[in-house]
Design a protein around this nucleic acid. Structure first.
Lengths: 162, 162
DNA sequence: ACTATCCGGATATATGACATCCGGGATGAA
DNA sequence: TTCATCCCGGATGTCATATATCCGGATAGT
């Protein structure tokens, strides 16, 4: 089991965009440069977040991306679902309907018990992700990051936005 | 994100083995036949569960697999970890150390906030899985399955064990 | 001895993740 | 108007992993 690397990139981008002045936007190239990741591929994930309404794209010269709504209203679950999709990790192939114990399809009214358990675990995972917003992450990073790193990041932002 | 199909197979096999008389074992071929899955591939997953101590293998003619401990003491988390591995779904690539805001490695004492959030969600998922035992699943299946399916399954078992 | 079975390794194939590129369209600046 | 950016979607290529199979060696019943 494995989550796409793009989720990490997307989350970091959202955190960076969350500390920008209102209405300011950063283009794909700048976001890629800041995080040291390939620009062409990051674009794919930014487009995905734009499609699901997390980011707003500003076309044209001096355009870029900015948050589509306040950072308090974007959760980590939104990011994961935008980039990794909403398909549950477990897919029941209904193997109970195979083999010698199989009965006609209409008998399988109730969902497979194993399926149900996996779905509950999936729901718990998503609930945990939904409880954390991008704004929460901004606060955490502000507390944890070294002053030096914060200073360098801010200095770069001034250059990128100017 | 996606869980190996083998987890479903493994869980169903454990449930079937849990209803066997004590000390009775079923070989790979029978387990595969009962669930309608390829025997050679199922063997891989059974071996994995054997290595992690969920199953006990009985070598030699008329051997097979049986539970290594009571069904009440085998959880769904055990199954998932045996077959899908214990590696967390999210892997932090520390992209905060890239780009213009990077500082010397010794400055990154505290874990990445995004990483921390993903780990908490992963823990919630595992906790949910750990709260359900194979014995619980046997009970659920007993309640939910159609009497007809249970009868056919039992009949097949009598033949397979005889 | 013979047969049935587990076990590990080697191998083949398919699926999806990762990564890049290009053409089209939209926007603002010159 | 013209031009330089920039977003967007599709096509493409590469690579890692999941899926699936097979074989030889070891082991235990008959």
């Amino acid at each position: 089991m494995k989550i796409s690397e793009g989720v990490e990139w997307g989350a970091h981008c959202l955190v960076l965009l969350a500390v920008l002045p209102a209405d300011a936007a950063l283009p794909t190239g700048r976001l890629a440069e800041y995080h040291g990741v390939p620009s062409a591929y990051l674009a794919k994930h930014l487009q995905a977040m734009s499609r699901t309404g997390l980011l707003e794209s500003v076309p044209g010269a001096r355009g870029g991306y900015r948050l589509a709504r306040p950072a308090t209203e974007i959760t980590m679950l939104d990011v994961v679902e935008a980039i990794d999709g909403t398909t549950p990790a477990f897919r029941c192939t209904e193997i109970r309907r195979n083999g010698p114990a199989a009965v006609p399809a209409r008998e399988y009214r109730l969902p497979c018990s194993i399926h149900a358990v996996m779905d509950r675990a999936d729901a718990a995972w998503r609930a945990e992700l939904a409880s954390v917003s991008i704004a929460d992450l901004v606060a955490m990073v502000g507390e944890k990051a070294s002053p030096e790193a914060l200073r360098k990041g801010a200095a770069w932002l001034v250059g990128a936005l100017g």
